[in-house]
Amino acid sequence: MISPLISATELRDRLGTPDLKVLDASWHLDGTDARAAHRRGHIPGAPFFDLDAVSDQATDLPHMLPPVPQFAADMGRLGLRESDEIVVYDTVGLFSAPRAWWMLRTFGAMRARVLDGGLPAWVAAGGAVEAGEVSPAPATFRAVPDATRVVDLGQVSAALAAGTPVLDARGAPRFRGEAPEPRPGLRGGHMPGAVNLPFSELLTSDGRLRPREELAPRLATAAPDGAGLPIATCGSGVTAAILVLALEVLGRKARLYDGSWAEWGTRPGTPIVAGP
Rank of each mutant, 00 (worst) to 15 (best):
P4F: 04
S7T: 15
P18V: 06
L20T: 11
K21T: 10
H28R: 13
R35T: 00
R35D: 06
A36S: 13
A36M: 08
H38I: 09
I43V: 14
I43L: 14
G45K: 09
P47T: 01
V54G: 03
S55K: 00
D56V: 01
A58D: 15
A58K: 08
D60Q: 08
P62R: 05
H63A: 04
H63N: 03
L65R: 14
A72P: 08
R81L: 00
R81Y: 01
E85M: 07
E85D: 10
I86C: 09
V88H: 03
V88P: 00
S96L: 05
A100G: 07
W102A: 00
F107L: 04
R113F: 01
V114F: 02
V114L: 03
L119G: 11
P120N: 04
P120S: 10
P120C: 05
A124D: 02
G126H: 11
G127I: 08
E130H: 13
P138G: 05
V144R: 15
V144M: 11
D146A: 14
T148I: 03
D152R: 03
G154E: 10
S157D: 15
A159E: 08
L160E: 05
A162W: 13
A162L: 08
A162M: 11
G171R: 14
P173W: 11
R174M: 05
R174C: 09
G177Y: 11
G177L: 13
P182R: 02
P182T: 05
P184R: 00
G189M: 07
M191I: 12
G193V: 12
N196F: 11
N196V: 07
E201T: 12
E201Y: 02
L202F: 05
L202D: 03
L203F: 04
L203C: 06
G207D: 01
R210F: 13
P211G: 00
E213G: 06
P217K: 04
P217I: 08
L219E: 08
L219Y: 11
A220Y: 10
G226R: 12
G228C: 12
P230M: 12
T233K: 05
T233S: 14
T233M: 10
I242W: 08
L243T: 15
A246G: 07
E248K: 01
R252W: 08
Y257W: 04
D258Q: 13
S260I: 02
T266W: 00
P271T: 10
I272E: 00
